[in-house]
Simulated assay, not measured.
Amino acid sequence: MAKTRHQSAARSGGAPTQRQLRVAELIRRALSDVLARGEVHDPELLGVSITVSEVRCSPDLRHATAFVLPLGGTNTEGVVAALNRCKAEIRHLVTGQIELKYSPQFTFQPDRTFDQMDRTRELLDSPPVRRDLE
C-alpha cells in the first residue's frame, strides 16, 4: 500500500497523525489518574498535585513525552526529576490501564507554556505595543 504525503510528513517530523494524537490522549488521561491517586512511591511526590498538560508520542508509539507541572509551579525541576526516576513504575501503572501493543517509554519534561503565555501578556502590555495599537 502506497504512503500518502501526509503519512510520510508525519514520520519525518511533521504534524502528528490522528493515531498518535488519540494514543497520546489515552496515555495523558491514564497518567493523570495514576498521579492523582498517588500510586507512585517516591517521597518527593507525596502530597504533590501534578498537572499533565500534554503527552506527545513518537510515530511508532514506543516513546511518549509527558509535559507536567506541579500545582502552583513550585519545585518543578525536583518533581520532574522524581518522575523520571520512577518512570519504570509509572510505565507499569499506566499500561495496566490502557491496551497497547507496546508499552511506551516515558520521558517527563516541565511544561513551559504558562511561562510563555505570561511573557506574551507582558509584551502585549508593554508601552511600545500599546502605543502602536492606539
Rank of each mutant, 00 (worst) to 15 (best):
L123P: 10
F108H: 04
F108V: 04
I27E: 02
L26C: 07
S53T: 15
G96V: 11
K101R: 12
F67K: 12
S103Q: 13
A81I: 02
S12N: 09
R119K: 11
P104I: 13
R19C: 02
T65R: 00
T113H: 08
E44I: 15
R112E: 12
M117F: 14
R62Q: 12
V68H: 05
L83S: 05
V23G: 02
G38T: 06
Q20E: 07
R11E: 14
G96Q: 14
G13D: 04
R121F: 12
G72Q: 07
P110D: 07
E77L: 12
L26P: 03
V40N: 04
H6K: 07
A30P: 08
A82N: 02
K101T: 00
V79S: 01
E134C: 06
E25S: 06
L61A: 03
R112V: 11
S53R: 15
T51N: 14
R121N: 10
L123S: 13
H63T: 00
L61Y: 02
D60M: 01
R11F: 13
T4L: 01
A88N: 12
V94M: 07
L35H: 03
F114T: 05
A9R: 06
V23F: 06
R11A: 13
V34R: 09
A24I: 01
A82V: 04
R5V: 11
F67S: 11
L71N: 07
E39A: 15
V40C: 08
R62H: 08
P43W: 03
L71V: 15
E54R: 15
H41D: 11
G13S: 07
S53M: 14
C57Q: 03
A9F: 02
G14D: 04
H63V: 00
T4M: 01
R130K: 14
L124Y: 10
L71T: 14
R56F: 06
R56Q: 12
R130G: 02
V48Q: 11
R5F: 14
P43C: 09
R19W: 00
L124E: 13
A10E: 01
L31W: 05
Q20C: 03
V94S: 07
